[in-house]
Design a binder for these strands. Sequence first.
DNA 1: AGAAACCGTTGATATATGTCAACGGTTTTT
DNA 2: AAAAACCGTTGACATATATCAACGGTTTCT
Lengths: 193, 193
Amino acid sequence: MHEKLIAYISQYSNLPLTTEEQALITATFQPKKIRKKQYFLQEGDVCKYAGFIVKGAMRQYSVDDKGTEHIVHLFIENYWANDRESSTMLTPSVYNIDAWEDTELLIITRAEMLYLMDKIPAIAQMIRLMDERNAIVNQRRLSSTISNTAEKRYEEFAAHHQQFIQRFPQHLIASYLGITKETLSRIRKQGTK
Amino acid sequence: MHEKLIAYISQYSNLPLTTEEQALITATFQPKKIRKKQYFLQEGDVCKYAGFIVKGAMRQYSVDDKGTEHIVHLFIENYWANDRESSTMLTPSVYNIDAWEDTELLIITRAEMLYLMDKIPAIAQMIRLMDERNAIVNQRRLSSTISNTAEKRYEEFAAHHQQFIQRFPQHLIASYLGITKETLSRIRKQGTK
DNA sequence: AGAAACCGTTGATATATGTCAACGGTTTTT
DNA sequence: AAAAACCGTTGACATATATCAACGGTTTCT
């Protein structure tokens, strides 16, 4: 089960992982299975673990006063489920993370991750590159949200996230884009003409 | 002029900077002055430098087909002006960064920064923490943009960014929030009642 | 196998926000 | 000192998107 994680880490670094490093990684990341609809993180709890998704699909969302869910992230294989603000600051999360499909994770605490970063250069390297990639992706999404119409946002999203479109129902995609499912339905209908 | 930068870096780390490290930093970061309205980065150019703002105020924005500017970032003292996607990937930027007030910067290339990260642990540490803080801030902004009405977004912004409100005109704040200046004007009027 | 939940779509209508034009008061430029 | 550019506001109107309700077709549960 840890092979996918090892492969994932390796891909970020030119330094190959030693056998000892691989063993340490395997010993540190704990497998965890979550059935569909179960929570990985609940609003109000501190996010204690980051989870690498080996198999499955998850979503992260907040719920407003009216009970409406707002999807902030969608995750599939090779993504990390985590509320960084909560796990870093040790504050209660405003988000929920739950499984959209039955999901297999490899989980790790923040303290363990800091330890691994210290012991394994490739991990430190991976984190740095992930942060960088993350900053870029966030910047793009923000920019798109501020500047573009719903239609253009959907087109951009569809162009770059084909796997998500296939894997999650439309109403989740709509919420991720900050629009209602009805609006997305109308946009798509119009787009095909 | 470099004292403010040294102080800024120190604040991120418990390791104090040695005299040699301070000298290296001072030698690497080049002072640069930019007059109001001048560009630090122009759309289409590769972002060659990151700039630490010692004094002044800047803005980062894209321009759409209709010629409308969309502010994605506002910067004042102790902020970093940079288009990370462009400087990391060496691709032409879709953004402009210009000075809103006369501004003094300390600039550094990506290669130099990587070198400093390698040589000075406190710098590596700073970058890591900045990335972390950044990820959190971006997450919040994104979440707010997706979930909240314009009015609530403005209230949240005003509550946490008093300095920006005092320093930049309303139409820039409006653009930063993804709304028009007219809408912001009406929101504010209503809010005071 | 039947019931229930889920999903996407459509219509009618409501609401938030954008667009355009104009104004008076500043500040900046020359 | 005059002219120009900038800034916030307001009104009238246009548009994008949300809301609410209903429907038929799936899929999921029991």
